[in-house]
């Protein structure tokens, strides 16, 4: 088993929490893991990505080869498209539909939607609304992870447990909200 994931978003949107959750789950399963992050200048509102690789055998490169990713998980729709050169032909894109507009020439939403539809294997959902409805507006990233969970070759309970571990120090309420967000995302993606 190997699963190569590109995580995408804008600096400050919380893609590293998604990475940390999958990472904890992978460790619990006794899998090999490599996870490359972006620190420094790009974190100031620039595009950020993380290469996350899990496997049952040793992983060599910290970077996913071009055309090799099993999926792109993105918390922002334009950022999902930026990493298509890394996606395998049969790979999936799971992305939030809510744009993060911090540049003057952000593309027209209809064009963006068309480009996402063009890609084929794509799941688009409004993670912000789902998180807001749960009363946890900051849990959009966990909604997206939930939506991607059926593509990740690990039992869903393992991911739930990882969310619990990750948010444990913030208290029971935060843990519950994030697990609810994870479940809601999985349901919204409708791929049990």
């Amino acid at each position: 088993m190997k699963c190569d994931i590109i995580l995408a978003g804008v600096g400050g949107q919380g893609i590293l929490s998604i990475a940390a959750t999958i990472g904890l789950a992978a460790v619990e399963r006794g899998l090999f893991l490599k996870q490359s992050e972006v620190h420094g200048m790009s974190q100031r509102g620039g595009d950020v990505q993380s290469h996350l690789r899990i496997s049952d055998s040793e992983i060599h490169s910290d970077l996913i080869p071009h055309g090799g990713a099993d999926m792109i998980i993105s918390v922002e729709p334009m950022e999902a498209l930026r990493y298509l050169p890394w996606l395998a032909p049969e790979g999936w894109v799971i992305t939030n539909s809510v744009p993060y507009v911090n540049i003057p020439d952000y593309p027209d939403m209809a064009e963006l939607k068309a480009a996402l539809e063009d890609n084929g294997n794509t799941v688009v959902l409004d993670a912000d609304s789902i998180a807001r409805d749960l009363g946890s507006p900051r849990s959009g990233n966990m909604v997206i992870l939930g939506a991607a969970s059926s593509f990740i070759p690990m039992p869903f309970e393992i991911l739930e447990h990882a969310v619990q571990q990750l948010f444990n120090r913030k208290g029971e309420v935060v843990v519950d909200l994030n697990i609810q967000a994870l479940r809601a995302g999985r349901e919204a993606a409708g791929r049990e």
């Binding site: 620039g46 055309g67 990713a69 298509l84 952000y106 064009e111």
Partner: peptide, 20 residues
């Protein structure tokens, strides 16, 4: 020779870092 993925669609704009 390695298979590369798709091209980046033209709709994707540069997102430079900026002041908070």
């Amino acid at each position: 020779k390695k298979d590369s993925g798709k091209e980046v669609p033209a709709v994707v704009r540069q997102r430079l870092p900026s002041f908070c």
